[in-house]
């Protein structure tokens, strides 16, 4: 049974599919996040070194993972768009960016709120926080470039190219920042690497990460549907929906 995946690469058939999938991903996201919070706040024991403060980890680490993961996925979609010239993948890339930027900001914010009680400072030029900050700049650059170009086709292609260049640079930046950090100061407490991490802590973190992932898929599918409607508004199938007055 071969499924014709190319069929869903066309915006016209992806649009209703995405609409049907969105509620399911919302349910998954809600269930996983509730389980994650329950494990994180009720089941997981108090850390003997950090006290209760470590519970910030259950959103900080998943948000940081998602911020990097989304950038990679964005660059893959941008690469697909350049190679295969599929319209849908450029739309996916642009739809992913705001969510990625949001999670990057969350990772920075929660990092600061964790750093204050642990390090005694809101901001420390720690290798991970610094790379995360630069990642935020990369997201902002991507979105600004997209917003600055009026023609959506050119905007998608130009920002896609930038995403790919950024993705090649991300490991180099991370490596260089880490190198810089070890030369300047010994790492203080490293996040998420507590030697005695209980299994429940790991489980809570993993489930929260899955929940954030499902949230990302749901919200990105919603956004890509807007993107499709906007860019395909002159096509026959959108015009038909307009004349019927229902948008799936």
């Amino acid at each position: 049974m071969a499924i014709n995946w190319y069929k869903f690469a066309s915006p016209a058939s992806f649009y209703p599919l995405a609409g049907r999938l969105v509620p399911w991903f919302w349910i998954l996201a809600a269930v996983l996040i509730v389980i994650g919070l329950y494990l994180g706040f009720v089941v997981a024991p108090t850390d003997y070194k950090q006290g209760e403060a470590y519970r910030i980890m259950f959103i900080h680490v998943p948000a940081a993972w998602m911020s990097m993961f989304i950038y990679i996925v964005m660059a893959i979609y941008a690469g697909l768009a350049l190679v295969l010239k599929t319209r849908l993948s450029t739309m996916m890339a642009t739809a992913l960016a705001p969510t990625g930027a949001m999670f990057t900001f969350v990772a920075l914010w929660t990092g600061a709120f964790w750093g204050k009680p642990m390090w005694g400072a809101w901001w420390v030029w720690d290798a991970r926080l610094t790379s995360e900050l630069i990642l935020l700049f990369l997201y902002i650059g991507y979105m600004s470039l997209y917003a600055a170009i009026d023609d959506p086709r050119r905007a998608a292609r130009a920002s896609g190219l930038l995403a790919i260049v950024g993705a090649v640079n991300v490991p180099i930046i991370y490596f260089s920042v880490k190198w810089w950090n070890t030369l300047h100061q010994g790492a203080s407490i490293s996040f998420g690497q507590a030697p005695t991490m209980a299994a429940t802590m790991l489980a809570a973190m993993g489930i929260m990460a899955l929940g954030f992932w499902m949230y990302t898929i749901a919200v990105v599918l919603m956004r890509v549907r807007c993107e499709i409607l906007e860019r395909e508004r002159h096509s026959d199938w959108v015009q038909e929906m307009v004349s019927r007055g229902t948008y799936g």
Binding site: I134, F137, L145, I149, A158, G166, F175, S176
Partner: peptide, 27 residues
């Protein structure tokens, strides 16, 4: 090349390029 002919190209250019300059600055 990416910001060619855009309004506000100069400021935009700095936003795109400065993060990519980080490794060169560090080394």
């Amino acid at each position: 090349a990416l910001t060619l002919g855009l309004r506000g190209g100069g400021v935009l250019l700095s936003l795109l390029i400065l993060p990519l300059y980080v490794p060169v600055l560090i080394f």
